[in-house]
Design a protein around this nucleic acid. Structure first.
Length: 418
DNA sequence: CATCCACTGGAATACCGGGTTC
DNA sequence: GAACCCGGTATTCCAGTGGATG
């Protein structure tokens, strides 16, 4: 390495890094050693799970709460504490199995995760497809029997699992305790949705929900405390303005008291500061971080959409353009979508499917859609873009597949005034 | 209160990846 | 290793339904 010429990375080394501690403290998924304003919840959960340390099956628990209110953090925290507690006593047999039902939302996947979680390290993993469900289930039961301890199955986002695949897996998991002669399972569910239990069979419901905990959203002062705590971990406390931290907390409190969002904003503010020249995080940095966060989310969601969703969104954007911000009806954008798909050389989906795609886009917050009835003249769904059509188009066209649509202009039709 | 259009839920179909059987 | 079994996912097909207007 030459001494006279600068190393390529040197420039970046000299960036004014303001993080002097653990950078992970600002990343999603970090589990702190302290849980400001969730100490009681953690203790309560530990109490519920404590029988497992004496080899008794704890009650099944469901934790409810909006996103970013610390559900997962509390659970992870308690898990870690429990693992520490087990290490000191050799005669307790506990396995904790984490399943993120946001990703694994089908019966096979859940049973597979449970089965794999019960394997000893030298055992070969179970096949991730191919087996009949009952064979997989029998294997899981057998593993529980051999294990002869308490298996705590943590089902994060359990509401998604139930919505997509019903409660059959839950029924099967609960039934293990009846058919296995040794070993017990305890289910710890985490849900964003208070009402998901309505989808449950009463028999499953009563057995699954032996204990419930509801976590309330944080208020601004609580989020402030959390941010302060994290900034201490990250070693940025000296580099952040008091009022900036308050602003950050206040902004996040306005949006459902989501602490995760506050931490995301703080992290981006840190990154912006390290790239910039200010050297300190100010109020303005926070506002800029907020804007960047929102922008990033839109780009991310739009660009990861499946092809046909992109085409539908493109149609809506085009109609938005001609109508200058107006909404479009199913008939309009479906026609346009068909033409676009044809031009791209892909076969178009049916209207039925496109109706679902509209619903998905609306769930993602990219569009607003509602059904409108015109009485005697039937009814349709209308869709409106939530972001500027030019911006949406720009993101869409960045996709290689869609780049050929760059110059597509819909022929001006006389559209009914809505 | 009939009417009309497409919304909507569910059953059917096609396809995929991967084990299992002979 | 060809043919078959199995569950998951995406889509289509079909029939029943919703609801404001006229």
């Amino acid at each position: 390495m030459g001494t006279s010429s600068k190393n390529l990375f040197e420039k970046f080394n000299h960036q004014s890094l303001i993080v002097k501690g653990q950078r992970q403290a600002l990343e999603p998924g970090f589990v702190p050693e302290r849980l400001p304003h969730r100490e009681e919840e953690a203790e309560q959960l530990a109490e519920i799970l404590s029988p497992s340390l004496k080899n008794f099956k704890p009650s099944n628990v469901i934790i409810f709460g909006k996103p970013g209110v610390g559900k997962t953090s509390v659970v992870k925290f308690v898990e870690n504490e429990m693992i520490k507690a087990i290490q000191s006593s050799l005669d307790t047999k506990i396995k904790i199995i984490d399943v993120n039902c946001g990703i694994v939302d089908n019966p096979y996947g859940v049973l597979l995760a449970v089965g794999d979680g019960l394997l000893d390290t030298w055992e070969e993993k179970l096949p991730f497809t191919g087996w009949p469900l009952d064979k997989l289930y029998n294997t899981v039961v057998e593993k529980i029997n051999n294990f002869a301890g308490i298996a705590i199955i943590v089902l994060d986002e359990i509401d998604k699992l139930v919505r997509k695949s019903g409660d059959s897996v839950l029924y099967q998991l609960l039934r293990i305790n009846e058919i296995a002669n040794q070993g017990r399972v305890c289910i710890l569910g985490i849900s964003n949705d208070l009402r998901f239990t309505e989808y449950l069979d009463p028999r499953v419901k009563s057995r699954l929900i032996e204990e419930t905990m509801v976590y309330n959203p944080y208020n601004a002062t609580q989020i402030y405390d959390i941010l302060r705590d994290r900034s201490l971990y990250a070693g940025i406390a000296d580099s952040i303005d008091e009022s900036a931290m308050k602003t950050c907390a206040a902004l996040a409190a306005q949006e459902h008291g989501d602490a995760r969002r506050a931490i995301d904003m703080l992290r981006i503010a840190v990154e912006l500061t390290e790239k910039g020249s200010e050297g300190r995080i100010l109020d303005d940095t926070i506002y800029e971080a907020k804007r960047k966060l929102e922008r990033d989310v839109v780009v991310e969601t739009v660009s990861t959409l499946p092809l046909h969703s992109k085409l539908v969104l493109f149609s809506i954007a085009l109609i938005d353009e001609i109508k200058n911000g107006g909404s479009s009806t199913m008939g309009e954008f479906y026609d346009l979508y068909e033409k676009i798909a044809d031009r791209m050389g892909v076969s178009s989906l049916t209207q039925r499917r496109v109706a679902d795609i509209i619903g998905e886009l609306s769930n993602l917050g990219l569009t607003d859609s509602k059904v409108q009835s015109f009485g005697r003249y039937g009814r349709t769904t209308t869709a409106t873009l939530n972001y500027g059509s030019s911006k949406i188009k720009e993101i869409l066209i960045a996709d290689e597949m869609l780049s050929q649509l760059k110059d597509v202009k819909p022929m001006q039709k006389s559209l009914p005034v809505s």
